[in-house]
Design a protein around this nucleic acid. Structure first.
Lengths: 347, 347
DNA sequence: CTGTTAGCGCTTTCAC
DNA sequence: GTGAAAGCGCTAACAG
């Protein structure tokens, strides 16, 4: 047998052909076995299974994806890894995706459109089957990259009036409006909205808009405050301290998230400022600590897990439809989920 | 020109050849440009750059990885996404890896050896350049998979006496021992250690061992408690409530992590149990909320960011050495990092 | 239900 | 410094 002069190292790993040889079938049959076990005869199934077991074979994702021009991953960009806000959504996405064999590619944008762009660019090279984005501001280049990729894009967390892609989210302006009305109904009038430190936190900005609209509807003057501190808890403390002192102290404060609100509560506790008597506090997110704080935190619970789950389901539906050349217009493109005001002690 | 009868769809995306054609160079030159800009002439560099810009070309990772048998990803398995404990380590890894162009593949094991095995198995198919694990218990199959993959493995968070791989971590038994001694020195005698709900939380178990050893050295009887609740904060409350009541209440409690300790503190606050007068509380982790709680939480700060950073650096060093056929025995295989007892009000 | 052949898009190897 | 050819490991397309 003449051997080619050119030699390449190869990875040394077990390949499909090794398995096929061991099972005395063709490579194609083994490939079919992986994609749909029942498309091969039962005797072969058993032989293949044994050969895989014996060799410890693991499919090479690269070769498969290259050949089929279909990635086995889903890219997801979130604003931030820590903070715990997105953890449940990520968990939901991985839970939902797992049975379908997709690997999650995760990147955080740090609330920056530039970093989001970099993440999307990196993803594209991985030919993800789809991309899930959390509703941040988007750079033009990112939009372009997404469009050129010709893959399903699902946006979650924010619900936009004019979505560019499939979206699964809740209305941030409505949260802002309802929080404001909730406080109004409980008798508070001097209601202040605290901005997040991240100016690009679109969700919080939208909640601010809702707050402002509601205040005007109620014939009240919207007042907002933007803390200087970059640290979440410190920012909450700073806001609470500033807004409860002075000549016309706030009667109630809406914080952009539970972390800031927790800072306020802990500050109140330490300074012996009575909440909600002196000043009511309302958060957003319903983090696990919210009902444990003293006083417990009145907040808004977004559908964190549900958003991830439905976003992932949309992705699966879309991919299946595209794969089978089915029409995609029966797939829901715009899912508005509800949130819940969780009434506790702080407001 | 005769066209092949067999046709495959192709992904439709811009390829290296498209760029090469536009720049009037060979594909190989463009490939070289990506791997090392200065290995091609400066005039070509400019033409290639322009062609890439114009086409919006993004390299196909699959084709490249398949051809070179070298993945462009690093797999990382952590016990849990939420909780905030590992977020900083993940951040450190991504920060450190980014300039080298590696994509992070992240999976959580949910503190389960089976899920860890599934994650590692999934990773292998992606031919990661290396794998970073957090020190959990490992199944035999996982060890086998890792060995067969022939790639660098770095373990972090836990520091083991007989490490199987390169490790970067701190000593959990030492943390348990030092926490115990710290409390002893401050006059506490009836010191109880609370177990985490996850029996597979190896780190916490090791801290428990350290605690037990220290107690015996001090001629005290080790007492441990295992809460029934699965919810972190609730488990802390449960432990605190149980251990401070009864005939011989605990004088000090060491919690396996700050979440449980926070639950205890908040319970004390609500029930008006004075901490540390009635019972001292010590945590582990130094989460951002630790110094904001009332009373502020005495805890232990592990080198969260540092571990991720050094683990990633080890990976980079190893990969570089392997790539250039350098000896790898100059690379530090065992890095023991220090932690810090953060003294605050609760103990 | 199973096998054969070609080729996905890139990089390795060799040649100039 | 640059190019041509071969092939990484798998799957689409076609044939039986």
């Amino acid at each position: 047998m003449s051997q080619s002069v050119r030699k390449r190292r190869g990875s040394g790993r077990t390949t499909l052909h090794d398995v096929a040889e061991l099972a005395s079938v063709s490579a194609m049959t083994v490939s079919r076995y992986f994609n749909n076990k029942d498309s091969v005869g039962s005797d072969m199934q058993e032989r293949i299974r044994a050969a895989i077991e014996q060799t410890g074979y693991v499919r090479n994702v690269f070769a498969g994806s290259l050949a089929s021009a279909r990635g086995r991953s889903i890219g997801m960009v979130i604003p931030h890894i820590s903070g715990g806000v997105y953890a449940e959504t990520i968990q939901a996405v991985t839970d939902t995706l797992r049975p379908f064999g997709y690997q999650l590619l995760l990147a955080s944008s740090n609330y920056s459109t530039e970093e989001e762009e970099a993440a999307v660019r990196a993803f594209i090279g991985w030919a993800p089957a789809a991309i899930i984005l959390t509703g941040q501001k988007r750079s033009r280049k990112t939009t372009e990259l997404l469009a050129n990729a010709h893959i399903p894009v699902v946006e979650t967390w924010a619900h936009k009036a004019r979505p560019q892609h499939i979206q699964v989210g809740f209305s941030n302006p409505a949260v802002g409006r309802d929080s404001t009305r909730y406080l109004y109904e409980r008798g508070y009038r001097r209601i202040v909205f605290v901005h997040p430190q991240r100016p690009d936190d679109v969700g919080a900005n939208d909640r601010a808009s809702g707050y402002e609209a509601a205040m005007r509807e109620l014939d009240l003057t919207p007042v907002t405050f933007r803390p200087k501190s970059e640290v979440l808890l410190d920012a909450g403390m700073e806001a609470f301290q500033t807004l409860t002192s002075g000549r016309k102290p706030a009667e109630a404060i809406i914080f952009p998230n539970d972390n800031l609100a927790a800072g306020a509560l802990l500050h109140g506790l330490r300074q012996k400022i009575e909440i909600p008597q002196t000043c009511a506090v309302m958060g957003f997110g319903d983090l696990s600590i919210a009902d444990k704080l003293v006083p417990s935190l009145t907040t808004v619970r977004p559908p964190r897990y549900e958003m991830g789950k439905i976003a992932a389901l949309r992705v699966i539906e879309l991919l299946r439809a595209l794969e089978e050349d089915m029409p995609t217009d029966t797939i829901e493109r715009d899912t508005l989920l509800s949130y819940e005001i969780v009434q506790r002690e702080s407001a």
